[in-house]
Design a protein around this nucleic acid. Structure first.
Lengths: 142, 142
DNA sequence: CAAAATTATATTGCACACAATTAGATTATG
DNA sequence: CATAATCTAATTGTGTGCAATATAATTTTG
């Protein structure tokens, strides 16, 4: 049991690296990293989110998101502005270029699914199990 | 299919973060990070490995391992020395303190297995699938 | 044997990831 | 209304993770 927990952790750790390596050549031409791509996906889903909302959705804190969003803004994909009604909040909104990227980036996903070499069933089962796993672990105080 | 690949990637990414958060409070008292712990596990399994061997085993390059091993040496857990027979290679060997840590750290794994909340069967099935997944992805040129 | 190619490691630069701290704004409370 | 408590971001510091480059040692080749 001890060894198995350790092995699962390392398997997850290695799989995360494998995904990163697969995404990198697809994202590089757009000047995006994988976490930046996650932010763009979220904004394409619904534009105009606060740093807090993005952090809750992606499981990241401001120490990670602040510089990441600054780089997205420097690349011209988003704008950052304080919310007029609550100046504590910063809203991230897509620029024209950021919206256009959605069409350009449509092909990014194409290769990844194939690279996994999984059937649809395996893909969705694995995803569901990992989600439950992460949820349980985040809920557990050791 | 497109959406599923994306979702699996994010699930893996999130699970890796979840594991990291679980390990951190257990490793912090020993001054170890998770990748450093992986190196120690490897050396406890078989002492005296080259940077190259550790990199192959853990999937890390010298850019990551060099500073990591330097910190392990600074903490007194390992020693680094050039191989006399081939001076290009650097051997990492455990110190007395590094070997002692194995006993101290025996309890580290205890909580993780429980935190996953998985049965033994789920644990080993999930591990096997993730290993195959990572292997396929590392073998695929997109 | 000498030049070229290869191998192993280290270094540099950039980008996460997170803890801890700080700063500013808003809300709650007496 | 004023002070305290809370909330939201940003900043700082440490540690990965990887590409690109540099350096030194070894092996191959002519």
């Amino acid at each position: 049991m001890l060894a198995l927990g350790r092995q699962l952790c390392f398997a997850v750790y290695s799989a995360a690296h494998a995904f990163n390596r697969s995404y990198k050549p697809l994202l590089d031409p757009h000047g995006l990293t994988y976490p930046q791509y996650l932010v763009m996906l979220s904004l394409w889903q619904g534009d105009g989110k606060t740093v807090k909302a993005l952090g809750d959705e992606l499981g990241l804190d401001s120490g990670t998101l602040s510089p990441l969003l600054r780089r997205l803004e420097q690349n011209g994909y988003i704008l950052r502005a304080r919310d007029r009604s609550d100046e504590r909040q910063v809203l991230a909104t897509l620029t024209e270029r950021g919206r256009d990227l959605k069409r350009e980036a449509a092909g990014i996903q194409r290769g990844i699914g194939e690279a996994t070499g999984c059937s649809l069933e395996t893909l969705s089962a694995l995803t569901a199990e990992l989600r439950e796993l992460a949820a349980r672990m985040n809920a557990t105080e050791i």
